[in-house]
Deep mutational scan, measured.
Amino acid sequence: MDTYKLILNGKTLKGETTTEAVDAATAEKVFKHYANEHGVHGHWTYDPETKTFTSTE
């Protein structure tokens, strides 16, 4: 398992979190669920070199 990072740049919520996942697709599902639960619906990007997802509203 690898550690993946999420950076949230929402209108009402900003911050970072991490998750352990078997691959990027699994981490993306976890992070999108997390963002949706916190009302963040933004544009998603992923940097495979740093294993970092960013959601920007």
Rank of each mutant, 00 (worst) to 15 (best):
1 M>D: 05
1 M>Q: 08
1 M>C: 12
1 M>S: 08
1 M>L: 13
1 M>V: 11
1 M>E: 06
1 M>I: 09
1 M>K: 13
2 D>V: 12
2 D>M: 14
2 D>C: 14
2 D>T: 14
2 D>E: 14
3 T>W: 09
3 T>K: 08
3 T>R: 09
3 T>H: 07
4 Y>E: 02
4 Y>G: 03
4 Y>H: 03
4 Y>I: 02
4 Y>R: 02
5 K>Y: 14
5 K>C: 08
5 K>W: 09
5 K>G: 03
5 K>M: 06
5 K>L: 07
6 L>K: 01
6 L>D: 03
6 L>T: 02
6 L>E: 03
6 L>R: 00
6 L>Q: 01
7 I>Y: 06
7 I>S: 03
7 I>M: 05
7 I>P: 01
7 I>F: 06
7 I>N: 03
7 I>E: 04
7 I>L: 06
7 I>H: 04
7 I>T: 04
7 I>Q: 04
8 L>A: 02
9 N>M: 11
9 N>H: 10
10 G>P: 02
10 G>F: 15
10 G>T: 09
10 G>E: 03
11 K>I: 15
11 K>R: 13
12 T>I: 10
13 L>N: 07
13 L>A: 09
13 L>R: 06
13 L>P: 03
13 L>Y: 15
13 L>Q: 08
13 L>H: 14
13 L>D: 05
14 K>M: 09
14 K>L: 07
14 K>F: 10
15 G>H: 14
15 G>L: 15
15 G>A: 15
16 E>C: 15
16 E>Y: 13
16 E>H: 09
16 E>I: 12
16 E>R: 07
16 E>G: 08
16 E>W: 14
17 T>K: 09
17 T>S: 08
17 T>L: 15
17 T>C: 15
17 T>Q: 08
18 T>S: 10
18 T>V: 08
18 T>H: 09
18 T>Y: 14
18 T>R: 07
18 T>F: 13
18 T>M: 08
19 T>D: 01
19 T>W: 07
19 T>C: 15
19 T>F: 12
20 E>S: 10
20 E>N: 10
20 E>K: 13
21 A>V: 03
21 A>H: 01
21 A>T: 04
21 A>Q: 06
22 V>C: 11
22 V>P: 15
22 V>W: 12
22 V>Y: 13
22 V>A: 13
22 V>G: 09
23 D>M: 02
23 D>L: 03
23 D>H: 03
23 D>V: 01
23 D>K: 02
23 D>E: 03
23 D>P: 01
24 A>F: 13
24 A>Y: 13
24 A>N: 04
24 A>T: 06
24 A>S: 08
24 A>I: 08
25 A>R: 10
25 A>T: 10
25 A>G: 08
25 A>D: 09
25 A>F: 10
25 A>S: 09
25 A>L: 10
26 T>P: 00
26 T>I: 07
26 T>G: 08
26 T>F: 07
27 A>K: 01
27 A>I: 02
27 A>T: 01
27 A>P: 01
28 E>V: 05
28 E>W: 15
28 E>R: 06
28 E>D: 04
28 E>M: 13
28 E>P: 00
29 K>Q: 12
29 K>D: 07
29 K>L: 12
29 K>Y: 08
30 V>D: 05
30 V>Y: 15
30 V>M: 10
31 F>V: 00
31 F>Y: 01
31 F>D: 00
32 K>L: 10
32 K>I: 09
33 H>V: 13
33 H>F: 11
33 H>E: 15
33 H>Y: 10
33 H>G: 09
34 Y>L: 06
34 Y>M: 05
34 Y>A: 02
34 Y>E: 02
34 Y>T: 02
34 Y>W: 12
35 A>S: 04
35 A>D: 01
35 A>T: 06
35 A>Q: 03
35 A>F: 04
35 A>L: 12
35 A>R: 02
35 A>K: 01
35 A>H: 02
36 N>V: 12
36 N>D: 12
37 E>A: 13
37 E>P: 02
37 E>M: 14
37 E>L: 14
38 H>T: 05
39 G>N: 10
40 V>E: 04
40 V>T: 04
40 V>F: 15
40 V>Y: 12
40 V>A: 05
41 H>T: 11
41 H>Q: 12
41 H>I: 12
41 H>Y: 14
41 H>R: 11
42 G>A: 05
42 G>S: 05
42 G>I: 07
42 G>T: 04
42 G>L: 14
42 G>Y: 05
43 H>A: 13
43 H>G: 07
43 H>K: 12
44 W>K: 00
44 W>P: 00
44 W>M: 09
44 W>N: 01
45 T>N: 08
45 T>P: 00
45 T>Q: 09
45 T>R: 07
45 T>H: 10
46 Y>W: 03
46 Y>P: 00
46 Y>R: 00
46 Y>T: 00
46 Y>K: 00
46 Y>C: 01
46 Y>E: 00
47 D>A: 06
47 D>W: 05
47 D>I: 05
47 D>M: 05
47 D>T: 06
48 P>G: 06
48 P>E: 10
48 P>K: 08
49 E>L: 13
49 E>S: 11
49 E>R: 11
49 E>W: 11
50 T>D: 04
50 T>N: 08
50 T>Y: 05
51 K>E: 01
51 K>S: 03
51 K>Q: 05
51 K>C: 04
51 K>I: 01
51 K>F: 08
52 T>N: 01
52 T>D: 00
52 T>M: 03
52 T>Q: 03
53 F>G: 00
53 F>M: 00
53 F>E: 00
53 F>I: 00
53 F>Y: 05
54 T>G: 03
54 T>H: 07
54 T>P: 00
54 T>A: 06
54 T>K: 05
55 S>V: 15
55 S>P: 02
55 S>T: 15
55 S>M: 15
55 S>N: 13
55 S>D: 05
56 T>P: 03
56 T>M: 07
56 T>F: 09
56 T>V: 09
56 T>R: 06
56 T>C: 08
56 T>L: 07
56 T>A: 07
57 E>K: 03
57 E>Y: 06
57 E>D: 07
57 E>S: 05
57 E>F: 06
57 E>R: 03
